[in-house]
Computed example of a mutant assay.
Amino acid sequence: MNYRRLVRVSAGYDLVVTAAFVTPWTYELLRQALSAVGLALGLGAMPATDPTATMYADLMGSIVVVWAVLRLIDPHPVLGLYDGVARMLFAIWEAYAAVHGATGLLWGFFAVEVLFGVLQLAPWLSAHPPWPTRSFTARLRRSSRGSTP
Rank of each mutant, 00 (worst) to 15 (best):
N2M: 05
R4F: 07
R5Q: 13
R5P: 00
L6S: 08
L6T: 11
L6Q: 11
L6E: 05
L6K: 15
V9Y: 14
V9D: 03
S10Q: 08
A11V: 07
A11Y: 05
G12L: 07
G12I: 03
G12N: 03
Y13R: 04
D14Q: 14
D14K: 11
L15W: 10
L15A: 15
L15C: 09
L15Q: 09
T18C: 05
A20F: 08
F21G: 07
F21P: 01
T23F: 01
P24V: 02
P24W: 06
W25T: 13
W25H: 12
L29N: 12
L30D: 04
R31H: 06
A33M: 11
L34H: 14
S35C: 05
A36M: 12
A36D: 14
V37K: 00
V37L: 15
V37E: 02
V37C: 04
G38M: 05
A40R: 03
G42P: 07
G42K: 02
G42H: 02
L43K: 07
G44Y: 02
G44Q: 11
A45T: 04
P47I: 06
P47K: 06
P47Y: 03
T49V: 10
D50Y: 12
D50F: 11
P51R: 10
T54F: 05
T54S: 02
Y56N: 06
A57H: 13
L59E: 09
L59I: 09
M60I: 15
M60R: 13
G61R: 02
G61N: 10
G61Q: 06
S62Y: 04
V64L: 10
V65E: 07
V66C: 08
V66Q: 03
W67K: 08
W67A: 08
A68C: 08
V69S: 02
L70G: 00
R71A: 02
R71W: 03
I73D: 00
H76P: 02
P77T: 06
V78W: 15
L79G: 13
Y82S: 12
Y82G: 14
D83S: 14
D83A: 13
G84Y: 04
G84W: 04
V85C: 10
A86R: 15
R87Q: 04
M88S: 04
M88A: 08
L89H: 08
F90V: 09
A91Q: 01
Y96N: 09
A98R: 12
A98I: 11
V99T: 10
H100Y: 12
G101A: 06
T103G: 06
T103M: 11
G104V: 08
G104Q: 08
G104T: 08
G104Y: 11
L106Q: 05
L106C: 01
W107C: 02
W107E: 00
G108W: 03
G108L: 00
G108I: 04
F109M: 07
F110S: 00
F110Y: 09
A111T: 09
V112I: 10
V112T: 11
F116K: 12
G117C: 04
Q120M: 15
Q120W: 04
L121N: 06
P123H: 15
W124E: 03
A127F: 06
H128E: 14
H128I: 00
P129S: 03
P129M: 03
P130Q: 06
P132C: 08
T133V: 14
R134T: 11
S135A: 15
A138V: 09
R142V: 01
S143A: 15
S143T: 09
S144R: 13
S144G: 09
R145C: 05
S147F: 12
